[in-house]
Design a binder for these strands. Structure first.
Lengths: 207, 207
DNA sequence: TAGTTTATACTAACACTGTAAGCTAACACT
DNA sequence: AGTGTTAGCTTACAGTGTTAGTATAAACTA
């Protein structure tokens, strides 16, 4: 039926195309609608061929999660580097806005990372933890800088704990926002984010 | 094969048993592993019989979500009523702790409500919004009371917005905690929650 | 260059899922 | 008694992830 492509295609990069098709599908339908057979259909290949590149569906999902974390981490780093090193408030604002922007631009990727959207999927922590941690590096680094400059308002909490709390606050707001679970208080997500960000800065950082 | 039960069983409450079996399954395997056929197997009935009580799987999930919201809301109300009306800080602490306790006790129910764990399921907002809102009533009421007592530190933010932000903070921390997505900072979820709760109280409320 | 191995595609099949259609026995009501 | 409705059942269909077995083209080896 199919024209039987020439065996080892050598440079067709089918693995990359599978990942690409998976993202396309996730962006449209959400992570939980990921289907190996539909990926295969879209690519014009047989479904089991995917198993030449991923040991099973979970393995593909893990690859997607790693890619998403790397994307988030690189956006964070870019935002951090875009602000002057010595202007800590500017750096903080830059990475804060970049964090929300990334989540709003790629909501399904964000939910893929931080939700539990795939039936029966459990993330292999030892694989994911390192790159997940690296997506928090920019924030941790800024908090550390505030600390070393003696500009932390709160002194009885470890800097990494402060960073973790800032993250859970931002994550809580952003994840609820892109899931459309915000309580109906007449404020758009952007406005609420600005308010919360200001409150966070006020509470933890001097000047 | 089966002894063919006596037709209209009238008081067998199969609908209730289906929901019960669904919870049992969700508690063990997580919400995304919910399977109508396995429910039927556990109850010793045929899978399509479920359709006599729920129009489809999503309908069952909606019923579960409503039940979960109601449970959360009633726990919140109980916690609110357990503290003396005039002691606003005690009431706030009571509902705060009750919120986390409920989430930790029923993590899968919490994730069912606030995550997007079911493949292809989209919550019917007009059905769920009212009971979802009612689970925030205790918090809103306490914040209102602080406001009317002139004991809000922050005056340029609407009280409902303050309540919403407090909720997103608590939700962010709790949801990440029960999903085991907390950054590795050596603090247990309980400790982190106490720290964050104190910070919230300090930031918004006087005395 | 000829022969062998290996990688990558395929088809067919299995076990599972939600769900629709149609049948039947028991009850409720005229 | 007869009728209609309810709530079970079996059967069947289309979808899913996954495994097994097969074929072919490329790459390596003698």
């Amino acid at each position: 039926m199919s024209p039987r492509p020439k065996g080892r295609t050598s440079k067709s990069d089918l693995r990359g195309k599978i990942i690409e098709a998976a993202w396309e599908q996730i962006s449209r339908e959400g992570a939980s609608a990921l289907s190996l057979r539909e990926i295969a259909r879209n690519l014009g290949i047989a479904a089991p061929s995917i198993y030449n590149y991923f040991s099973d569906r979970d393995d593909l999902v893990t690859a997607l999660i790693l890619e998403a974390y790397e994307s988030l981490a690189s956006h964070q780093k870019a935002a951090n580097d875009a602000a002057p090193v010595e202007n800590l408030h500017a750096r903080l604002a830059s990475i804060g806005n970049a964090y929300r922007d990334w989540a709003v631009t790629f909501p399904q990727r964000y939910l893929l990372i931080f939700g539990t959207p795939i039936p029966g999927y459990v993330a292999p922590l030892e694989t994911i933890a390192p790159v997940a941690a690296s997506s928090l590096n920019a924030l941790i680094s800024v908090v550390e800088s505030f600390h070393q400059a003696g500009r932390l308002k709160v002194v009885d909490i470890d800097t990494r704990t402060i960073a973790a709390l800032i993250w859970t606050r931002v994550h809580g707001l952003v994840s609820v926002d892109i899931s459309n679970n915000l309580p109906p208080i007449g404020l758009a997500g952007t406005q609420l984010f600005q308010i919360e960000f200001k409150l966070i800065v006020d509470q933890f950082f001097k000047e």
